[in-house]
Each structure stands twice: as C-alpha cells, then as structure tokens.
Design a protein around this nucleic acid. Sequence first.
DNA 1: ATGGGTGCAAAGGATTTGCAACATT
DNA 2: AATGTTGCAAATCCTTTGCACCCAT
Lengths: 138, 138
Amino acid sequence: MTNAELLLEKGIRPSVQRLAVFNYLKEHPVHPTAEKIYSELAPENPTLSKTTVYNTLHLFSQKNLVTILRIEDEEVRYDGNTSPHLHFKCRKCGCIIDIFDEKKLRQLISLAEEIVPSEMELNETEINFQGICSNCRN
Amino acid sequence: MTNAELLLEKGIRPSVQRLAVFNYLKEHPVHPTAEKIYSELAPENPTLSKTTVYNTLHLFSQKNLVTILRIEDEEVRYDGNTSPHLHFKCRKCGCIIDIFDEKKLRQLISLAEEIVPSEMELNETEINFQGICSNCRN
DNA sequence: ATGGGTGCAAAGGATTTGCAACATT
DNA sequence: AATGTTGCAAATCCTTTGCACCCAT
C-alpha cells in the first residue's frame, strides 16, 4: 500500500504537502520537531509553510498516524512510528532511541495497568526513560 | 526540620520568595503551573515576580526538590513531591492524580530496567497514564 | 461554485534575558 | 565591598489564528 493510499484510508486527502510530511516522518524515524520537518522539506517544497506542517501534524496525531513525544524539556517531537515501543532519551547527546521488545513491553504495560486503581478508566500508558546512551558512555 | 532548613541543606539560600514557592508546593500537591503558583502567591507577596517563580522552579528542579511534569499538552506542571510515584491524567476534568503503590512500583521499575539494553545507563523512568478519573466516570 | 487545503502575516502565550536595584554576607 | 537575589521590561521562541487565495471536485 502506498503512503497516499494509507492516508486515504484514514480519511485524509493526500495533498502534496501532507504526503511530503508523511514520507519525511516515515523515512526519518528520529522523532523530528515541527521546525526540523519544515526546514528539511522547505527547500524541495517551496510551496510548504510552517502553518501547514503544524496543521498536518495535528491532523495526523488525531488520526493516530503520529505520536506526540513530550520527553524533552524544550521541544515537542513527532514520532511517525505508531507501533508500540518506548523511548529512551540520552541526557548527553540528546538523541532519542526507540526500544522495541514486544514481550517485555506487554509485561510492562500489563503491570502498569494493575497499578492504576480500577475505579479509573485507563486509556493510555506512556513510559519514557532517561539516561546515557551507549555511544556517549565511551 | 523546617522548610528553610531543608533548603539550606540543599545549598539554597532560603529567601522569602523561595520559601513562599516551596511552602506553596508542599501545601498544594496538585502539580500547579508556574502561572498558578505566581498568581496565588502574588497577592500576599507583593514582592514576588514571575521571573523569580521561574528562577526558583528551575533551581529546585536542579536540586531535585521538584519534578517537572510534561504530561499535559499545553502546560508544564511542577510536582513538589519527590518521593517515587506515578501520575494519572484525567482527560475529562484535567486533574492529575498521584498513584502511590510502593510494591508494584518497585516491580514496575525493575521490569523497566530490564527492558533497557544494558549498554545504556538508565537514570530515570517516567510513567504517565491517561484516562478518565473515578469522579468523572459517574 | 463550493468546500477543503494552504500560506502569509500578525497575534498569542509561555518562558527567558538584560540589566539595574536590592539584600545579605 | 562582594556576591547572590530579585523584578521590571523587553526579547524570544514556538505555536495558533485570521483571512484571502487556490485547488479539486
């Protein structure tokens, strides 16, 4: 399935701008900021504005095509990978690393859910790590 | 130990303004925003500025007297309770509820630590929940 | 022609900064 | 006196808004 078809399936008209943002997110799974997405795409897409980047990211986030990451102090980041995974932020170099480990992830989430009193309705669980990445430890 | 002594112990001079902010955080464990802290304290402390509130919160956060909560989309909140606990945000009323459960929390953290590859140094694990609180479910 | 989509420029809001005055040692 | 602390006002940065134009149906 092409990206355009994917957008259509979610009820989003695949305009040039939206596709550009979507492709960028898929091809650059580094959790970019809105600013980063704009500045990278702008040269090749002179017909792109920052407003549209924001509009598009909001739209994608509503349709669960993008996850909003608030792991940073300063900036909001967008993650185009919506499969379940966790994030580790390096305090030294600032990079954000994805952690995939389905089995443990499931355990972790189910344990997390036990901790929430049953009178509450739990919809979302967010887990973030911080520390020093392997690169920076050397 | 008085709050003033507590600050001194952390190497922070307990000025009137800093004590006011610190007391407020301790007496209002509702994870207020900087704005909230300022507007609540300003009437009684005419000698308090928003700048000082920000300065103070940054200082406290450096000294681990305060935790910064980024569970909200819009605003940053400050938590004066530094004992380990989790946060649950109600999507209806917007309240943020603390969850204390030492035993499960320890399990959760140790599992979380397993999931992070050992090449990385893990310093902090942050877990946030979102859903509907018991009040709002009725 | 109509409704959604876009982009500019301006507005908004939260936080930070520069700097002079003040307090404390 | 020297250093740390404060507060005003201005600056900054990120994001949103208003509105006119454009494109696709």
